[in-house]
């Protein structure tokens, strides 16, 4: 696995002068976790609000006597 990573790193560096630094994941993975969690929470709140709005907007049918 290390060999593959090293090969990719060398090839990328040679081609574009850009490094391949898996260590950067330590910084970005928490952002990914928080970001996805944040989106689901916000969308969850919006779903609850929309459900509430739908109930609010639906007038209960009056029973015909």
């Amino acid at each position: 696995m290390d060999t593959i990573t090293t090969t990719i790193a060398e090839a990328t560096s040679a081609a574009a002068g850009i490094g391949f630094t898996p260590n950067n994941l330590a910084e970005t993975v928490p952002i990914m976790g928080k970001g996805m969690l944040g989106i689901f929470i916000v969308m969850g709140i919006i779903i609850l609000c929309v459900s509430g709005l739908n109930r609010l907007g639906t007038k209960p049918k009056k029973d015909k006597k």
């Binding site: 898996p22 950067n24 994941l25 990914m32 970001g35 996805m36 779903i47 929309v50 739908n54």
Partner: peptide
């Protein structure tokens, strides 16, 4: 989406590529 608010879950899940690419781009330096 107002008739079926649950559809919003898919909108949320489909943003995964953004954060995956953030990690990948960062690895590319």
């Amino acid at each position: 989406v107002l008739t079926n608010p649950k559809l919003m879950i898919f909108g949320a899940a489909a943003q995964f590529g953004i954060f995956f690419t953030l990690c990948l781009s960062s690895m590319f330096g």
